[in-house]
Amino acid sequence: MTLKVNLITGRTIDQGVTIENKTSSDYQEATAYCELNSKNLEILGKPGSNVRVKTRYGDVVVKLKENNGNPDSIAFIPMGPWANAVVDPDTRGCGMPGFKGIPAEIEVTKDKILLMKELIARYK
């Protein structure tokens, strides 16, 4: 099952707490997930399961999380290397890439979430 969403990324307090500790599992816990409201989430599976988020710009495996503050079809990933694997690099002539409002597809996956080190290693 694939869910089409509009992806946004942003800060969270746990992302902030762990930001200077990026090699830790706490940082991964705090940033390598994707939030959907329960209605959207049910289509895919249970909170805690792994999903692959795909955009024109890349794909990344993160954990599914529930947040009923999200309207329908809005997915949220905390800012960080996992989110940035799939954001829109175009700065539209003003220096700022597209960190919010990226069309994305989400599907359940058995693949594991890459560690920060492994994720960045993909770029080398």
Binding site: G80, V86, M116, Y123
Partner: peptide, 16 residues
Amino acid sequence: GDAGAHFPADSVRHLA
């Protein structure tokens, strides 16, 4: 500042 974490993949790819 951590460009590796906070830049889009394309930018990090060039940094790499």
